[in-house]
């Protein structure tokens, strides 16, 4: 019993902000992990990260206008995702560049909006809150919206599950089989936008990439079928998030009066998970990596 109290300190489960963080964090972790598996498989890690960064412009705008921050993140992320799919750049290099240029514009806007926010007399802590997240300050009133966003993203992914798998094998193959590839791409981009903005809310725009890519990359190192990859990614992301919240709460006792950031622990746990997964996963034959012949 004492050991348990050492790990889960008294008051942890009765604490309101902790409750909210646990619920919203779990939602963000699950959705990011599932969407992330497809993002990594489709080679869109950069796009996923860019979307998160760009969405911070929405977060700052919401902050400036006093709107619900999740709506701000969401609106801009959805807009950017739609735009990226609409541009429909097939060539991987050009797609990277378009993503990059858009990322620059989004971050520039973020800079401007944050600046305008500070001259309006608000605290300059907004930059840190928006970019790095602040899990323990999420209002409880945000829970229903956050869970709805998570639910919609999961339904969207479930709807396009099979064509997504097929097209990550080969886009030509999916198209030849009559899959509506463009519509599928759009739905995936929107699911990505939902996942990213939810994660941006919780761990911050800049670190949401960790939730998106980390668990997925870890699961893909050893899972050999799609269901297991999704399951493991969810398990790793979820465990890291709750573990991170717990450790951050504990850290108030380690260094009195000053807690360590949640995002730090979450990322560290995810990275440990990734390294362990790499050790657990059988290394594919070297020739398989270079040239299957």
């Amino acid at each position: 019993m004492h050991l348990l109290e050492l790990i889960v300190p008294p008051g942890f489960l009765a604490n309101g902000p902790v409750h909210t963080a646990l619920i919203v964090g779990a939602g963000a972790a699950v959705v990011s992990a599932i969407v992330g598996v497809f993002t990594v498989m489709r080679g869109q890690s950069f796009a996923g990260h860019a979307l998160a960064d760009v969405s911070s412009a929405g977060g700052s705008a919401a902050f400036l206008l006093g709107l619900n921050p999740l709506l701000g993140f969401l609106g801009v992320a959805a807009l950017a995702a739609g735009g990226m799919e609409w541009a429909d750049v097939r060539d991987a290099r050009e797609r990277d560049l378009v993503t990059g240029v858009m990322l620059g514009v989004g971050l520039g806007l973020t800079a401007l909006l944050l600046y305008l926010g500070t001259i309006r007399g608000s605290t300059s802590g907004a930059a840190i809150a928006i970019l790095f997240g602040s899990m323990f300050t999420i209002p409880a009133s945000l829970i229903p919206l956050a869970l709805t966003v998570a639910g919609v993203a999961l339904v969207a992914i479930a709807a396009i599950y099979r064509p997504l798998l097929l097209s990550s094998l080969s886009a030509d193959l999916a198209q030849a089989q009559g899959a509506r590839v463009r519509r599928m791409g759009l739905v995936h981009a929107l699911a990505l936008a939902l996942a990213v903005s939810l994660a941006a809310m919780t761990v911050g725009a800049i670190l949401s990439t960790a939730l998106l890519i980390g668990p997925a990359a870890a699961a893909l190192r050893f899972a050999d079928r799609p269901g297991r990859a999704l399951g493991w990614a969810v398990a790793i992301g979820w465990a890291a998030t709750w573990g991170g919240i717990l450790l951050a709460y504990d850290s108030f006792y380690w260094t009195p009066g000053h807690g360590w950031p949640v995002s730090f622990f979450i990322v560290v746990l995810i990275f440990i998970g990734y390294l362990l997964a790499g050790l657990a996963g059988r290394r594919p034959a070297r020739q398989g990596l270079e040239r299957p012949a």
């Binding site: 990594v40 890690s45 990439t209 890519i213 990359a217 360590w260 995002s263 730090f264 979450i266």
Partner: peptide, 28 residues
């Protein structure tokens, strides 16, 4: 993969960044 490696490095570096930031006040 190259981009996964890049993304993971970013995550680790920024996690350290948040930690350092939390240690200094008046830095925003």
């Amino acid at each position: 993969r190259r981009e996964v490696a890049t993304a993971l490095w970013l995550a680790v570096a920024l996690a350290l960044g948040t930690l350092f930031l939390s240690m200094t006040s008046e830095y925003s």
